[in-house]
Design a protein around this nucleic acid. Structure first.
Length: 642
RNA sequence: GCCCACGUAGCUCAGUCGGUAGAGCGCGUCCUUGGUAAGGACGAGGUCAGCGGUUCAAUCCCGCUCGUGGGCUCCA
């Protein structure tokens, strides 16, 4: 048979040759690192004999699919160990996930994390034994018989579904453990040496809260000890950077407690960060052609009925009685901006009209989903709505995407772009006409193409009211977060009958785009804290300079310098506490103050300061002006967009 | 909302097999005038999350509530 390789070379092999043998034919190293094989687009075990001509790719841990196979295989190793140690356990599913895997078990009286040592020991033992993963294909009756005998009710449920879907059944045997599984798997447990069990959690069978709660065990596995260690170190680092820990520590904010779950209280230092960020946002928006507006926190319930929020979002809304009517706290800003748009008859000459607001919204999120600043019940959407004509769509989208990327660049975030499209097999899920969707979807794609941006189209990810562009931002630890989102809306212009008068004197339906660049100011600040490990850029730092007179004799000089800095709008303070210099420096360092001016007798006499920079250490004595220049450069606000 | 775990001083935590509690940091006062990541002494500070129950006695045992964390689901 003729086998094509990714480098488009071609080789002849005897029918029945396995992927592993072909890998070995290429190089010993590839055979050693090979995990699975992709043959004519199908993922197969390495020991699967190949019987026809085709394209082959030997996959290792470097390939996403190889990585998944390794992780999924490790979940079987985990399940095998659990079966051995807890014979009464019943098994759910055990897929690979981003950065690892999990397996769901029904284990009566599972002791929790304290069982990890024993389970890990058993897994290590089996990993050493080099036990092969053996694939078996079988009929439904045989599979049902196997799992019925074991009392595996969850597996039986899965088999039924396979039967209904008309799919075949395969199982994998790993030593004494047999599991229903599509595969593929790595050849044997010897590939599974570098794993670690991480945590346990409850999870409903099939994610449905009406089902029983299973015990989920999370773990991760890598191809080498080095990569595993690096990943674990990253997790440690992430824990250290957790904004829920750093925020209160740095005096930025507190959340929840007696103040109410999911509600944020910004402390003085945090308020400075917020205001700086918001001021820059406002200036940038004005520069980019937006008009700032401000709308109330409550609005009559009728408005929410017109917008449609009442019918599909009311479980997440807070209501209040006012006079004889009912009001709602706004969960979104759009209806407010609609009222402003509709305030007068609009002409095509006014379009595109871009309205923007840092609007606080309130949503009744389930108590269990609240998470630091990332998921709260009251937050500020950096909202904007663009009203435009059809001809203006491509240009407006380009402008918004460029604007969004501008903000990510300020903070050195990486990014990746997704274009969420409608699923044309479920047209009834969407508002608006399919032809209109088609026009706009291609306009969004065209805008991205013309900008030369890479993006991933995702069918079925669009919201019911329109297609959207989502930008995921990548932080310093390589983690992706929900970033800017740009959403088209076919629903609201129709519901509110939003029109403009065209050059032909006729009314036309306006096109509308929602966009949020930070998403939520609260969440974005949470991201910034973790991205920078609390060491915010100078312009956002609540304290920019601490002046440290070595003895009280330099206090007067310190005050003189403080006044100079204050006139330059530098946020500075004097720490003249009766503590040693070392102590006060430590305090400023742990407080992550970017700059310290240390003034002793020598400096005070000669109008000099000794400059210390956070994270860098002592920069030595210099002229006051020079130190001020360094501070001003370090605290300069970002350039506005072009 | 659901499942599991947790809740002791401002913070991080110890402790009490049921007899109302301790450390370090922080805070206050005093001493110390010190040169680049913790000088010293003394002191204040706790209804042991809240409410009920069991008990001669509850911070500890039981129940409920609230809050927090890990997940499920959801999401800016």
């Amino acid at each position: 048979m003729r086998i094509n390789f990714p480098d488009s070379s071609l080789k002849e092999y005897e029918a029945g040759t396995t992927g592993l043998e072909i890998a070995g034919d290429i190089s010993e190293g590839l055979a050693r690192n090979a995990l699975i094989v992709k043959f004519n687009g199908k993922l197969l075990d390495l020991d699967e004999p190949l019987r026809e001509d085709g394209n082959i790719e030997i996959l290792t841990f470097r390939d996403e699919e190889g990585k998944k196979a390794l992780r999924h295989s490790c979940s079987h190793l985990l399940a095998g160990a659990v079966q051995k140690l807890y014979p009464s356990a019943r098994f759910g599913i055990g897929p690979s996930i981003e950065d690892g895997f999990y397996y769901d078990f029904d284990i009566p009286d599972f002791p929790g994390i304290s069982a990890f040592e024993e389970i890990t020991g058993e897994m290590k033992r089996q990993a050493k034994e080099n036990i092969p993963f053996v694939r078996k294909e079988m009929g439904f009756e045989e599979a049902v018989a196997i799992f019925k005998e074991k009392g595996e009710k969850y597996k039986l449920e899965l088999i039924e579904e396979l039967r209904d879907a008309g799919e075949s059944v395969s199982v994998y045997q790993l030593g004494e453990f047999i599991d229903l599984c599509r595969g593929p798997h790595v050849p044997s447990t010897k590939c599974l040496k570098y794993f670690k069990l991480l945590s346990t959690a409850g999870a409903y069978w099939r994610g449905d809260e009406n089902n029983e709660m299973l015990t989920r065990i999370y773990g991760t596995v890598f191809d080498s000890s080095k990569n595993l260690k690096e990943h674990l170190a990253m997790l440690e680092e992430a824990k250290k950077r957790d904004h829920r820990k750093l925020g209160p520590e740095l005096g930025l904010f507190i959340i929840g407690g007696s103040g109410g779950p999911g509600l944020t209280y910004w402390l003085p230092a945090g308020t400075i960060v917020r205001e700086e960020l918001e001021n820059h946002w406002k200036k940038a928006h004005v520069k980019s052609g937006y008009q700032l507006v401000s709308t109330p926190h409550i609005a009559p319930v009728e408005l929410w009925k017109t917008s449609g929020h009442y019918s599909y979002y009311k479980d997440n809304m807070y209501f209040l009685d006012v006079d004889k009517g009912q009001y709602a706290l706004k969960p979104m800003n759009c209806p407010g901006h609609i009222i402003i748009y509709k305030n007068s008859k609009r002409s095509y000459r006014e379009l595109p009209m871009r309205l923007a607001e840092l609007g606080m919204v309130y949503r009744h999120e389930k108590s269990g989903v609240l998470h630091g600043l990332m998921r709260v019940r009251g937050f500020t959407v950096d909202d904007g709505h663009i009203f435009c004509t059809e001809d203006q769509i491509v240009d407006e989208i380009k402008k918004v995407v460029r604007f969004a990327l501008y903000f990510l660049k300020i903070f050195d975030f990486g990014y990746s772009i997704e274009l969420s499209l409608m699923d044309r097999e479920h047209l009834d899920h969407y508002a608006g006409e399919p032809e209109e969707w088609g026009k706009v979807e291609s306009a969004l794609g065209k805008a991205l193409d013309e900008m030369g941006e890479d993006y991933r189209p995702v069918v079925g990810e669009a919201v019911f009211y329109g297609p959207k562009i989502d930008i995921k931002m990548k932080d310093a630890l390589g983690r992706f977060w929900q970033g800017p989102t740009i959403q088209f809306d076919f629903n609201i212009p129709q519901r509110f009958n939003l029109t403009y008068v065209g050059s032909d004197g006729q009314d036309h339906r306006v096109f509308m785009v929602h966009r949020a660049l930070f998403g939520s100011v609260e969440r974005f600040i949470g991201n910034l804290i973790e991205h920078y490990a609390g060491n915010l850029p100078g312009w956002l730092a609540p304290h920019q300079v601490v002046i440290l007179p070595i003895t009280s004799s330099q206090l007067e000089k310190a005050e003189e310098i403080e006044n100079i800095l204050a006139d330059l709008e530098v946020r500075c303070s004097i720490d003249a506490r009766s503590e040693t210099v070392g102590y006060r420096i430590r305090d400023a360092e742990t407080g992550k103050v970017p700059f310290m001016f240390i003034i002793g007798e020598r400096e005070a006499e000669s109008n000099r300061v000794s400059l210390r920079i956070h994270g860098e250490g002592d920069r030595g004595s210099m002229e006051l002006d020079e130190a001020i220049d360094i501070v001003m450069a370090g605290c300069r606000r970002p350039e506005l967009p072009e």
